[in-house]
Design a protein around this nucleic acid. Structure first.
Lengths: 105, 105
DNA sequence: GTTATAGTCAACCAAATGGTTCATTAATAA
DNA sequence: TTATTAATGAACCATTTGGTTGACTATAAC
């Protein structure tokens, strides 16, 4: 049930975007993520919680670890919202796009 | 010069997204925009300033009016960032059961 | 001129944000 | 059993945010 407000808000922090990038190859524990950042485990845990509440990351408790993994469905919703404006930026590059399309054929 | 931080932050507010939607058909003055919202002109003016600083809206002073228009190039940057995750929502390799398990706290 | 309109600026407020430290819970290891 | 590890919770702090009101600037209209 994540709304666009919390999704975009979650994406507005560089640390959280970096967390998402780290999760691309596969799931990671919260403490593994924390090693990459110059902040406390508590801070990273909070960021993960924000991402989780925004629906961008799923967290699964296994033993005493929390395993985090991307939930890209929510990103798709943000992407879909932006896509409604696509015409406003593709129009400018229309000529280039046609040119590239012609080269593909 | 807008960074992703301010771009996504600007997009995280429903009022500002509504302003962007209103600007799709064409430019509008700040006071025209303000008519649509249950808040003061000052508040709308502040939202426009946030959108302008984020590079999402261009503002041109004409007479005593400020005319606002979309700048979709910045939206494209946000869209491009999200697009790097496209593979994660187009290829749905995660199964539903695991997803549901992750949802429980 | 005087007055109305468009908009910003400044000050203020309550709530949210991003970070810290310290304490605590829960699971594993010795 | 005891100690260690993984992670969250609680309290705190400074800054930012989204809104207000009231004063102000600048343009346009009468």
């Amino acid at each position: 049930m994540p709304d666009l407000d919390s999704t975009f808000a979650a994406l507005s922090d560089a640390t959280r975007r970096a967390i998402l990038a780290q999760l691309m190859p596969g799931e990671m524990r919260v403490s593994d993520l924390a090693h990459s950042f110059d902040m406390t485990l508590t801070a990273v845990s909070k960021h993960v919680r924000v991402l989780n509440k925004a629906g961008l990351v799923d967290v699964e408790k296994r033993g005493r670890s929390r395993h985090c993994r991307l939930n890209a469905d929510t990103m798709k919703e943000a992407s879909d919202w932006l896509a409604e404006y696509e015409a406003f930026w593709t129009q400018r590059f229309d000529n280039l796009a046609r040119h590239l399309q012609a080269q593909e054929d």
